[in-house]
């Protein structure tokens, strides 16, 4: 009979596909984003951040960047930037979600913790020309975002998404560029939750000593690390450009270690991309390499 009556067939096919749909897609609405998922610290986007998010969508950054730190140890270590793995409650204001399916570039769920500088100096340089910061990067240059932001719909967006906003939030949009908006969004990502590991990391190195006291022994390696990670901002010869000169320093080894591993203002943190030995080698180069090239 089934093979002879297309109307019954199509109804039955509909019923069959709705079973799995109901269990795995419809039923979960009851729990996901419910009270158990809520995290009080997580805040909705400001008008500027939401504009940035919309530009992120427009440019399809999600084709190369994911936004979920999985519960795997290696994920937390690499992309947690001191925070933990991603939790459902962090995404309740995300319409749509931007978790992505590819990591051609690194995960950005906690990128706000990595480059906390309020002026976004690192992001500006990187977005204008990624290869100037990371030479082998295949990320496209987004210098074209340095154009005025169109905020005609900002208030309507806030209303539609049901996000709180003030006049001042809207006034803040005047004179902003698209670049300002997308950087404001980058800087927000992952910063709502407290990070325990970041605090622990500041204390730890002070207790330890620099294992290298002879520059000669580590110079080649230190110079190559420097060229790869630091030259873009501190100059080819450590003479300083975006960041200050690194030919000698009055700071202690431990202080330098902390700045490099944790970052500060415009200085990104390298704690998750360089290992401890590497950072100590750089410290040695800075302290003892005052007269070397």
């Amino acid at each position: 009979m089934l093979e002879k009556n297309p109307v019954i067939f199509i109804i039955l096919a509909f019923v069959v596909i709705m079973i799995g749909t109901t269990v795995t897609m419809i039923a979960p609405f009851k729990w996901i984003n419910g009270p158990a998922d809520r995290i009080a610290e997580v805040k909705p986007y400001t008008p500027l951040q939401q504009e940035g998010r919309d530009i992120y969508m427009r440019e399809g950054c999600n084709n190369c960047h994911s936004q979920t730190v999985r519960t795997l140890a290696a994920d937390v270590e690499r992309y947690g930037n001191g925070g933990s793995y991603s939790k459902s409650g962090e995404f309740v204001y995300d319409r749509p979600h931007l978790w992505g399916s590819r990591r051609t570039g690194p995960d950005l769920a906690r990128i706000g913790l990595k480059y906390p500088d309020p002026n976004g100096m690192w992001h500006r340089k990187h977005m204008d020309n990624p290869q100037s910061v990371v030479p082998a990067s295949n990320m496209p240059a987004y210098a074209f975002l340095n154009q005025p932001l169109n905020f005609a719909y900002s208030e309507r967006k806030m209303k539609l998404l049901n996000f709180p906003y003030t006049r001042a939030d809207l006034d803040e949009l005047k004179g902003k560029s698209e670049m300002d908006a997308i950087i404001a969004y980058m800087r927000k990502l992952g910063t709502d939750l407290p990070t325990k590991k970041a605090e622990a990391a500041t204390q730890a190195p002070a207790a330890r000593n620099n294992p290298f006291s002879d520059l000669k022994a580590v110079k080649t390696e230190a110079l190559s690390l420097y060229a790869k990670n630091c030259a873009a901002c501190h100059g080819d010869k450590r003479q300083g450009s975006l960041g200050p000169t690194l030919k000698g320093s009055a700071k202690s080894d431990a202080e330098l270690f902390a700045v490099i591993s944790k970052g500060r203002a415009g200085m990104p943190s390298f704690g998750s991309s360089l290992d401890e030995q590497g950072i100590w080698k750089l410290v040695t180069l800075i302290k003892l390499g005052k007269h070397d090239d």
Partner: peptide, 14 residues
């Protein structure tokens, strides 16, 4: 431009 009616984890699951 439109915004989905689902948010976050729900949107991902859908």
């Amino acid at each position: 431009k439109s915004y989905p009616i689902f948010a976050g984890t729900n949107d991902a699951n859908v």
